[in-house]
């Protein structure tokens, strides 16, 4: 009995298990150099190498990509998040409300909002912001931050986020992967993608 429990409990990555993860979704190849509009918006990114995008969206304002399965590499695009909306789907609106986005947020608030969302969803205290820098997304001023956390599967992961509020809407790209091997393997390409993202 207990072994069964442990196995089932072992899966927990920040976004993919929390939003309706498209485990049955089909994946489509995004070839290196392909330019694509993401998350039903005008945000255009260029794949630095071959990635796979899920044909099913976690939420109407997001899109998920992976190379080796979302447990190992998870690239999320969020676009046009409006005042009062949350990063993930709200599952327990009253008892465990997720923090809502507000266009009045300062860049520091965005970081805390992301951290708070993660803390509530993961129920954890091991989520830590490692570094925060001013940055741009598609030419607009925003923020770039790095974080680390350990989820329910006891795997240490690293993540990076680029985000900006543009016309009162939030645009955010996040990447996370296990600290061992996978993060380092992909982060350079992901950072380049964040740097080169543009609006059509």
């Amino acid at each position: 009995m207990m072994n069964f429990l442990m196995k089932s409990a072992a899966a927990l990555v920040l976004a993919s298990t929390l939003v309706a993860a498209p485990a049955e979704a089909r994946w489509r190849l995004v070839e290196a150099g392909d330019e694509r509009k993401v998350a039903r918006s005008k945000l255009v990114v260029t794949a630095p190498e071959d990635w796979n995008r899920a044909t099913e969206r976690p939420t109407s304002r997001s899109e998920i990509w992976t190379t080796e399965g979302t447990q190992l590499t998870e690239l999320m695009f969020y676009a046009k998040i409006k005042d009062g909306e949350t990063l993930f789907k709200r599952r327990q609106r009253k008892r465990n409300p997720l923090p809502e986005f507000s266009p009045d947020m300062l860049p520091t608030d965005l970081v805390e909002w992301y951290e708070d969302t993660a803390n509530i969803v993961l129920g954890g205290s091991l989520f830590e912001i490692v570094e925060v820098q001013p940055a741009t997304l598609g030419g607009y001023p925003g923020v770039h931050f790095r974080y680390s956390y350990t989820g329910g599967d006891n795997v240490a992961r690293l993540g990076e986020v680029r985000a900006a509020i543009i016309d009162e809407r939030l645009y955010l790209i996040s990447f996370e992967a296990p600290k061992i091997y996978y993060f380092d393997r992909y982060i350079t390409g992901v950072r380049a993608m964040m740097d080169n993202a543009r609006f059509e």
């Binding site: 969803v121 129920g123 599967d153």
Partner: peptide, 13 residues
């Protein structure tokens, strides 16, 4: 369950 429950599954039981 509270969201918070997720992270402690590894030992909570």
């Amino acid at each position: 369950i509270p969201y918070a429950a997720a992270m402690v599954t590894q030992y909570a039981f």
